[in-house]
C-alpha cells in the first residue's frame, strides 16, 4: 500500500501555489493536512502527478478576530481551534465540533481549509459552516472571491472551487447574545465518521421566543443540508417539546440518505430526527443559560 510517483512542490506564498495549480491543472492536487488525501494516495485511489503542499505557506496559518467573528487561515490546524479560547468564546459551535473531528492525532495535522475543500458528506466542519453562515475566502488565477457556505458544497467531495483555486481563509461570524448551539452525532465508535449528525443554533429574544434557528444535518446526504423548513417551525415561537418534535419530523422529511456497511438509510433518517430533537433541546438549554 504505497503511493504512486508524483512531483512535489512546496510553494512559499499563495500566489506561487495558484500558479502551480494552474500550470498542472487536473494533474495537480493540493496537500494541506493530508489526513484524507494521503490515505487515498497510499491506496492509489488518488494518484496526482503533482502535489502542491500548502504547509510551507505561512500566510495561510492564522487565527484572528475580525469584527463580528473570527477568520481562520486555510491551513490552520483543527487542533489550534480546539485549543483556542478565542474560538471557544466567539464561536462555541465551531469549538464544540472540533473534538468530533477524527482523533487528536488527526486534528494535529488536519486543517480547516482542507476539511471544507474535501467536503466529505459525513464531516462536521461543513455543517458548522452552514449553521454559522461562514464565508469561504477563495483565491485563484483570476483573483479572490468569497463564497457563502451555502453555495460552497455542491456534491459529495465536490465544492465550488475551480481546479486552480484554493481556500485561503474562512470567516466564521459570531452569533448574537441569547444564542445557544449544539452539535451532536452518532458514530459507530468515537472519532468515526457520523452515521448522522446535526449542528444547531437557536437565538432567543428577550421574551424567550426563538428569533432565529439554524439547523444543518450531515452524514445523511451528499452534502450537509440546512433544513430551513424545520427552522421556520421554531422561529418566532416559544419552543415547546411539541414544537421540537414537529421541527425534528420536518427536518428529516425530505432526507434521502444512503445505506452503507455502517447503517441503513432508514436508520440514518430516523436517528437524524432524534438528534435534531436532542440538539434543539441542548441548544435551547444553552441559550437560556441552563447549560454551558
Amino acid at each position: 500500500m504505497k503511493p504512486a510517483v508524483f512531483d512535489y512542490h512546496a510553494p512559499a506564498i499563495v500566489q506561487e501555489a495558484v500558479e502551480l495549480l494552474q500550470r498542472y491543472g487536473e494533474d495537480a492536487t493540493v496537500l494541506a493536512g493530508g489526513q484524507s488525501l494521503v490515505p487515498l494516495m497510499n491506496l492509489r485511489l488518488s494518484r496526482p502527478g503533482h502535489v502542491v503542499d500548502l504547509n510551507g505557506v505561512p500566510e495561510l496559518d492564522y487565527l484572528t478576530v475580525d469584527g463580528e467573528g473570527i477568520v481562520v487561515g486555510a491551513t490552520t490546524r483543527q487542533r489550534t481551534l480546539e485549543r483556542s479560547d478565542t474560538v471557544r468564546d466567539l464561536c462555541p459551535l465551531l469549538w464544540r465540533a472540533m473534538p468530533l473531528v477524527g482523533h487528536f492525532q488527526v486534528r494535529n495535522r488536519g486543517t480547516v481549509g482542507g476539511s471544507l475543500a474535501h467536503a466529505d458528506p459525513a464531516s462536521e466542519l461543513p455543517a458548522v459552516a452552514l449553521v454559522l453562515q461562514a464565508e469561504v475566502g477563495v483565491v485563484g488565477p483570476t483573483g479572490r472571491r468569497d463564497v457563502k457556505a451555502e453555495d460552497f458544497f455542491i456534491d459529495a467531495y465536490t465544492t465550488a472551487l475551480d481546479s486552480a483555486e484554493i481556500v485561503e481563509h474562512v470567516r466564521f461570524p459570531s452569533l448574537p447574545g441569547g444564542t445557544g448551539t449544539a452539535i451532536l452525532e452518532v458514530a459507530r465508535r468515537e472519532g468515526d465518521f457520523a452515521m448522522a449528525g446535526v449542528a444547531a443554533s437557536l437565538t432567543l429574544d428577550p421574551e424567550g421566543l426563538c428569533s432565529s434557528a439554524r439547523l444543518a444535518l450531515f452524514g445523511v446526504g451528499p452534502t450537509p443540508v440546512r433544513v430551513i423548513k424545520a427552522e421556520r417551525i421554531l422561529e418566532g415561537r416559544a419552543i415547546t417539546e411539541e414544537l421540537v418534535g414537529e421541527a425534528a419530523a420536518m427536518a428529516v422529511q425530505d432526507l434521502d440518505p444512503s445505506s452503507d456497511v455502517h447503517a441503513s438509510a432508514a436508520y440514518r433518517k430516523r436517528v437524524a430526527g432524534v438528534l435534531v430533537r436532542r440538539a434543539i433541546a441542548e441548544a435551547l438549554a444553552r441559550a437560556t443559560g441552563e447549560q454551558t
Binding site: V186, R188, A263, S264, A266, Y267, R270
Partner: peptide, 13 residues
Amino acid sequence: LKPDRLIEATGGD
C-alpha cells in the same frame, strides 16, 4: 448488534 439492527429489532425502521 449494530445500532441499525437494534433499532429495527425494537420495531423501529
